[in-house]
């Protein structure tokens, strides 16, 4: 519905700004989160690319899932994702989000993140080093510029698919506000 009102030129300007200013919400349950502080601070300083940490889901553009997700935290991640405002992007971080990594046969973690949330970009590695993380961010920027990072639209279009997958591991998702 929104698309009608946004002329493509305006959208380009927004994409241009969006690319250069990304607020990141890092969901630090996995062990890979330990690589984020060096990425943010003096050594690798990601703020020179216009990427900064956001304090709450409402303010964030990127949801960074840093590693394995137990089924219990998946529910919180889904809430967090749904609270974020559109254009929003999900980045899977570490092999745990790709195929389960070293938790591939665990009974209480999920194996493949993009069954539950529309992942725009994966960073492989266990755990990826700050250089790899920055590389990932630069790739994401390129995707945004080209209008390829459309995960949030996909989530709306294929809502049924994601919801059934989520329900399979979580049971009925009850929302209490």
């Amino acid at each position: 519905m929104k698309e009608k009102y946004k002329s493509s030129k305006w959208q380009e300007v927004i994409n241009w700004a969006q690319k250069r200013s990304l607020f990141m919400l890092h969901y630090c349950t996995g062990c890979g989160a330990i690589e984020l502080p060096p990425t943010m601070t003096s050594r690798y300083d990601m703020s020179r690319f216009g990427i900064g940490p956001a304090a709450t889901p409402r303010q964030a553009d990127i949801l960074l899932i840093t590693g394995y997700l137990s089924t219990k935290t998946l529910r919180r991640v889904v809430y967090t994702y749904e609270q974020m405002q559109d254009p929003k992007f999900v980045m899977g971080f570490g092999s745990c989000t790709i195929n389960g990594g070293m938790y591939w046969d665990s009974y209480n973690t999920i194996k493949q993140l993009d069954k539950y949330l529309p992942v725009d970009l994966y960073i492989a590695g266990c755990m990826p080093r700050p250089e790899a993380i920055l590389e990932g961010f630069l790739d994401l920027k390129e995707k945004i510029e080209n209008g390829e990072a459309k995960g949030y639209k996909k989530y709306k279009e294929e809502y049924e698919y994601y919801k059934t997958n989520q329900k399979k591991v979580l049971g009925e998702v009850k929302r209490r506000q």
Binding site: V13, I14, A17, S42, D45, S47, G50, D86
Partner: peptide, 28 residues
Amino acid sequence: VARTQKRIGPPFYQPYLDVLKLFGKDAI
């Protein structure tokens, strides 16, 4: 602040981009 922390820091026009981006986003 970035220079005092020995970082390079965002470009000085970063807040303009932030505001532009924020106005392009949805709001609830």
